[in-house]
Design a protein around this nucleic acid. Structure first.
Length: 390
DNA sequence: TGGCAGTCAATATC
DNA sequence: GATATTGACTGCCA
């Protein structure tokens, strides 16, 4: 990937938009950096977060800087305070070691000769192989097939992919150097020794649990991408949600449906990480083995996934309080009437967190239990939340 | 103790 | 029949 060298003079520090001069294919970011993925720059001088938002946009933010490439192709750069700098270029380059360099240059700003040069050491993505970055048009089937290769082939020690690269890449080093020349900063073709991320995960083998990872070994999973892949996998291999949920996850069909349609970001998860990790470890197996696991006894499934049995759901046979005396009675699910529901929703729009007293008043007016009203608001808050995140 | 995460499982919807 | 929705339960944590 070569950069366009054209320069745009920085006319004024008040200018907050710069033409994006990098000659990148339109779908470059979407292709090499999965939408909604994040990368973290660990350099203490220039730490920050890069977010790939889809639609070919990317934003970097730190305590000092905030800039991004908009879908329009413009480079935006904003900074509060007096030390505003003007970035003339933002460049990306890939080398044969699958390292991506992001380079921002504000060399026109002589008063503050500051360069930003981040080397994003990333693992091979399903999309690039060899010395040249490939920007193919990929169908979902292609993505799946290539991912399969990436996840299951035997990599050399140097090439080991991070199987967490299901929609994610790791940032291992970043540099900021105010004294180095620009040429020194950008060396797209020179191999950059890739240091292994401290919590990266490698697919070691295509056989059995060797391809699995433990919770403590993994730093991040792109749950959205993972769920998309699981959905494709289930569709293509005609695996019913009920089968997959019960066999692989030890969870119910409804739970799986919810997880797949409303994946929570990895860093927002608590104990729920293990459920996603089971999906992840299943997907990391070769296809034949994935299918074989579905036929295994439950104990063998745990072993195949390299994971212990999940914490049993303690409320597995849930009955309403009134049903507890008769455990064989099938619970009927309470359903709010239209009026109750519409009223609750209207109140929720105004007040997401009504006081206990207010909940009691609502319950009285709608002839509901306070617990039901409480549950409604609790569920509404979190379900609204994951609608937002999606 | 209240709020929440994770989940079940009935049932609505496709 | 498969999947999506949703009211409620349990345990954890601040």
């Amino acid at each position: 990937m070569q950069s366009n060298e054209s320069q745009q003079p920085c006319s004024s520090n008040s200018s907050r938009k710069r033409k994006f001069v990098e000659d990148l294919p339109e779908n470059f970011l979407d292709t090499v950096c999965p939408p909604n993925s994040k990368a973290r720059l660990e350099d203490p001088l220039q730490s920050g977060e890069i977010t790939f938002s889809g639609n070919n946009s990317m934003h970097f933010s730190s305590s000092e800087h905030a800039f991004g490439r908009e879908p329009s192709g413009q480079l935006s750069y904003t900074e509060d305070g007096d030390d505003y700098q003007c970035l003339e270029e933002m460049k990306f380059s890939m080398n044969s070691q699958n390292n991506m360099s992001l380079f921002g240059d504000d060399s026109n700003n002589q008063a503050n000769d500051d360069y930003l040069n981040f080397e994003l050491s990333r693992t091979p993505s399903p999309f690039d192989f060899g010395d040249d970055l490939m920007i193919p048009e990929l169908s979902s089937d292609d993505v799946r097939a290539i991912s399969q290769v990436v996840l299951t082939q035997n990599w050399s020690e140097e090439q080991k992919p991070n199987i967490a690269d299901i929609g994610e890449f790791e940032v291992t080093s970043t540099q900021k150097n105010n004294t180095r020349s620009r040429k020194e900063l950008v060396q797209p073709s020179s191999p950059v020794k890739r240091s292994k991320p401290p919590h990266s995960v490698a697919a070691q083998s295509s056989v059995g649990s060797n391809a699995s990872v433990k919770l403590e070994e993994i730093s991040y999973i792109d749950t959205k991408n993972l769920c998309e892949r699981i959905t494709i996998e289930m569709r293509d291999n005609k695996i019913a949600q009920k089968t997959f949920a019960e066999k692989i996850l030890c969870r119910s069909q409804g739970t799986l449906s919810d997880l797949l349609n409303n994946p929570k970001p990895w860093d927002k998860l608590k104990s729920g990480k293990t459920t996603y990790l089971r999906m992840f470890n299943w997907l990391a197996q070769p296809l034949s083995r994935r299918m074989a696991i579905l036929e295994m006894d439950i104990d063998d499934v745990h072993e195949a996934l390299g994971m212990s049995a999940p914490v049993p759901v303690r409320n597995a046979s849930k009955k309403s309080k009134s049903m507890k005396s008769d455990p064989d009675t099938k619970r009927t699910r309470f359903v709010f009437t239209n009026i109750q529901k519409e009223t609750l929703e209207a109140i929720f729009k105004e007040t997401e967190r009504p006081s206990r007293e207010m909940q009691e008043t609502i319950a009285n007016h709608l002839k509901l239990d306070v617990e039901s009203v409480c549950n409604f608001f609790m569920n509404a808050r979190r379900r609204k939340l994951h609608k937002k995140t999606n």
